[in-house]
Nucleic acid binder design. Structure first.
Lengths: 200, 200
DNA sequence: GGTCAATCTTTACGGTGGCAACTTACCAGT
DNA sequence: ACTGGTAAGTTGCCACCGTAAAGATTGACC
């Protein structure tokens, strides 16, 4: 059984891409290196993804899928606004730390095709889960809350935390203080966010 | 100082880099294209910056310098905590929008050498200005506030807003709603942040 | 005017992305 | 069971890129 045909090459290529990006950053990504790691020739990815942007877009979509799944699973059964935001925020950070390669690609929006249907679907699904959390905040804490502004605020804060986390370690080592772990910070952030949005 | 053949090649190369990155994103950056735009041969940048990372590091340092200068000039004469956070936040966004190429490089920390002295100096200077703002919040609104946690929160929120702003436009166009301009959002963010940090 | 060092150019080499042409495996229809 | 078609992967090619080395040019200093 000569395995000329790979079992599931697209998935293997996505995994290799995520691994490579997690190791060397998005700038260290190389289509040929990914193909090498997957054990295929350098032109094989083109048959499934067209070009490098196509592969990276697929990785980003996969990342948003995992994020949206986690946000829905974590949050959609919680009725208390603060507890939901805490839990979903912690889940966001957890997924981001578990999938560093995916998230690095998801943020770097000039690498991906933002019109991709799968990418749009899952990223909108994640955003919708966040919006439902904001509706809870509005219903329980502040009827005047603007849902979209609040959702953007939470999204930006958590995403900023994740993308700044390597730099935080640098600053901490430079100033001599020790860095607070990200999963601890996110809890404080949730407090700040909820209290900030609850104020009228 | 450097004024032999070219007028001031290092500065010209930084400017060309920022322009190119602003146009095509960090992934569209190419040392040869930068040299082409500056009107020099493709190996000229190496003599001043060593390699591509050196040039990008210099651009990032320049960006942090402009940011730190603005944050100090905008904030250091304001005594009211909320007003200071508002003003500095607006200034952050303004500098980011005025220097999109610089900021794209500053965020993408795998592109730059984070040990660079100039980079460290200016980024720590910006962080210190932010810390002074947090001390105002502590003194005026909440004596129990943890300065570093609060500073990280504000930094992450504003930086997340800036780096998410292109994606916000996408989401808005996908959902049919219209996107709120970033310079309006930052004002709301400042409210959320201050009220969140003031709660005890 | 002559020497020297800094600045830039030229040349060369290995790596990379994308394209075209080719080979191999699988599958559907008769 | 054969056969045509299609999907999956390979090889070869070209232009571009980053970097290193060696050559050329310019300004500065004595």
């Amino acid at each position: 059984m000569t395995k000329y045909h790979h079992g599931d090459l697209p998935a293997a290529l996505r995994a290799a891409t995520a691994e490579l990006v997690a190791e060397k950053g998005p700038s260290g990504f190389s289509l040929r290196e990914v193909a090498r790691r997957a054990g295929v020739s350098h032109a094989a990815p083109a048959h499934h993804f067209g070009d490098a942007e196509g592969l990276l877009t697929s990785v980003a979509a996969e990342g948003f899928q995992r994020l949206a799944d986690a946000m829905e699973a974590d949050g959609d059964h919680i009725d208390d606004a603060l507890q939901r935001l805490r839990t979903v925020g912690a889940g966001y950070v957890r997924v981001a730390l578990e999938n560093p390669g995916h998230f690095a690609v998801m943020i770097q929006s000039d690498l991906v095709c933002n019109d991709d249907p799968a990418l749009m679907e899952h990223s909108l699904r994640a955003y919708a889960a966040l919006q439902r959390g904001m509706e809870l905040v509005r219903d329980q804490l502040n009827p005047d809350l603007d849902i979209d502004t609040a959702a953007t605020f939470c999204w930006a804060s958590i995403q900023g935390l994740v993308s700044l986390s390597p730099k935080l370690d640098d600053v901490a080592s430079d100033t001599g203080t020790k860095a607070t772990p990200v999963n601890v910070l996110v809890d404080e952030f949730a407090n700040y966010m909820v209290h900030g949005m609850a104020a009228r």
